[in-house]
Design a protein around this nucleic acid. Structure first.
Lengths: 156, 156
DNA sequence: CCACTGCGTGGACGCCATCGACCTCAGCCT
DNA sequence: AGGCTGAGGTCGATGGCGTCCACGCAGTGG
């Protein structure tokens, strides 16, 4: 992970469809060299994939909600997690410090579907209660941070 | 936005680096036809961009926090929004129903940086208070929903 | 009936991805 | 010192891909 790798990651965060030739020009290497570096970044898990950023409303997902989950005392966290994982509407899942064990981001088409989702969550074994807030609008999402300050790190 | 467009969006959500030729094979059209369709989807804002999905720890962003913002009574929402927008650590920003006007997702390198960020937010004009929860781990994030059920919609 | 428009195909051509051969340099062993 | 070795780069070749253009083929309105 040197400075060139960081540049590549940065460039691909901004536009994942850049060609290797274009990346090569930007970082001042040859295309095969960039090809190999990107391959290694993928293999090492730094680059986990490439996703199109889609306008949610365009694909029928106009309702966004943030849902906090309070666990039953004695409930198994992994069981709850497995149950949540089976719900495709849950786009993100964070395990949190605090009273609420999980914070979920869900996207559905309608408020009625959100209601169904919340009912399903409340019915899930290990879930004591939920608290959901509806997003009136998404101002932005997954904005890539401009640069990576070279954080001091132990050399391998 | 017909079924083929939906397939293209779906395919690109799964892997934004698929070639037009590969997309063409998958949807049963020629490469130029796919090229044109994708171009129109981009122009119409359905496809907003293509992002590499990066392991945050790998680029020095190991701390994730969710922050709720309560506005001052009488504070201007847009002013608060503008201030938030200037903070690069805020990756997502939702305008919410409820006591907290905004729900932010922030990523920073260290707890110390998070502290600084929270102080900055509390110092921002129009912000009455903040409430932040730290994510102990991110189970998953921005998982693409499997398919889009063809939701009934008014034809333009 | 015919022109127009939208949307597709097929062909052409230059650029790109990718492979293999080779180069260079640093580190290390003898 | 000298040479081995491995990492990581360039260069050149080639087959596939992106992209432009001309054309075909509905469906539509005058």
């Amino acid at each position: 992970m040197d400075a060139i790798d960081l540049s590549l990651v940065e460039l691909l965060r901004g536009n994942a469809r850049l060609s290797y030739a274009e990346l090569a020009r930007q970082v001042g290497l040859s295309a095969p060299a960039v090809h190999e570096r990107v391959g290694k970044l993928e293999a090492s898990g730094v680059l986990r994939g490439y996703r199109a950023d889609v306008e949610p409303e365009a694909i029928g997902l106009g309702v966004t909600a943030l849902i906090g989950i309070v666990q039953d005392s004695g409930g198994d966290t992994d069981d709850v997690l497995d149950a949540i994982r089976e719900m495709p509407e849950i786009e993100s899942c964070y395990f949190m410090a605090g009273v609420e064990s999980f914070l979920l981001k869900a996207r559905v088409g309608t408020i009625a579907e959100l209601e169904q989702l919340i009912l399903r969550l409340n019915r899930t074994a290990g879930v004591a209660s939920t608290r959901t807030g509806v997003a009136l609008s998404t101002k932005w999402e997954n904005r890539p941070q401009p640069v990576t300050p070279p954080r001091p790190e132990a050399a391998p």
